[in-house]
Amino acid sequence: MIKGFKEFILRGNVIDLAVAVVIGAAFTGIVNAIVTGLINPLIALIFQADSLNSLVWKVPTLTGGETTFSWGLILGAIINFLAVAIVVYFVFVYPMNRLKEREEKRRGIGQPDEPSLPTEQELLIQIRDLLERQAPASKP
């Protein structure tokens, strides 16, 4: 049981996942700062961000009371999620992909290989077919 746990912990996937979690936590601060300092003020120019939370739908209940659906809160969460996703993509993912493409291009990785030469058997088949076409049809 201990041996299996040790193999699990030392497997590369677990260590990669742990590194990803730590890096993700570090990037959370950066992304939140960009969203709070840049994206939210841009949204506030279009919408009144404070008023999103006050957008509700009040529905009367059967007992005479009222139930409130806070659809503005949901809309605000969706806008916030999209803002975070946009920041992560355009600030981190897109530039990293471009850097990776440039590095691969510089190293020649991903370049199309030269066409492979035909095998000996393929050459013999081609020669045979050419000889058959060139030879006069012999009649028995």
Rank of each mutant, 00 (worst) to 15 (best):
T68K: 15
V84L: 07
K58T: 14
T63Q: 11
V84R: 15
V35R: 01
N32R: 06
I78G: 05
T68P: 01
T61G: 09
N40Q: 15
L45Q: 09
L38D: 01
P41V: 02
A26V: 12
L62A: 14
S54W: 04
L45W: 08
V56K: 13
L55S: 01
I74P: 01
I46Y: 00
N80V: 01
F27W: 06
A77R: 09
A44K: 05
F27K: 07
L82R: 06
N53E: 13
T61N: 12
V31N: 04
Q48R: 13
V59G: 00
I34M: 05
P60H: 06
N80L: 08
A49Q: 13
N32C: 03
A26G: 13
L73M: 11
S70E: 13
L62D: 09
K58I: 10
I46S: 00
I79H: 05
G65Y: 03
T28P: 00
E66T: 14
L62N: 10
I74L: 14
T28D: 11
N40A: 10
I79A: 13
I78S: 07
L62Y: 04
G29S: 07
L82K: 06
W57V: 08
F27H: 00
L38R: 03
G29Y: 11
F47H: 00
L45H: 02
A44S: 12
V35T: 06
W57T: 06
K58E: 15
S70F: 12
I39W: 09
A49V: 13
I23P: 02
A25T: 10
S70I: 04
L42I: 12
L73C: 04
S70P: 11
L42N: 07
T28V: 07
I23K: 05
G37D: 02
F69A: 08
V35D: 02
V22K: 08
F81Y: 10
L55W: 11
I39G: 02
W57Q: 11
T63F: 10
S51G: 01
V84S: 14
E66D: 08
L42P: 03
T28L: 10
N40T: 14
V84I: 13
T36H: 09
V31P: 01
A77G: 09
A26K: 04
V84Q: 15
F81M: 09
G24R: 05
F81G: 08
V35M: 07
S70D: 13
I30Q: 05
T68M: 12
L62Q: 09
L45T: 08
I43V: 14
S54N: 10
N40P: 00
A33W: 11
G29W: 08
A33P: 01
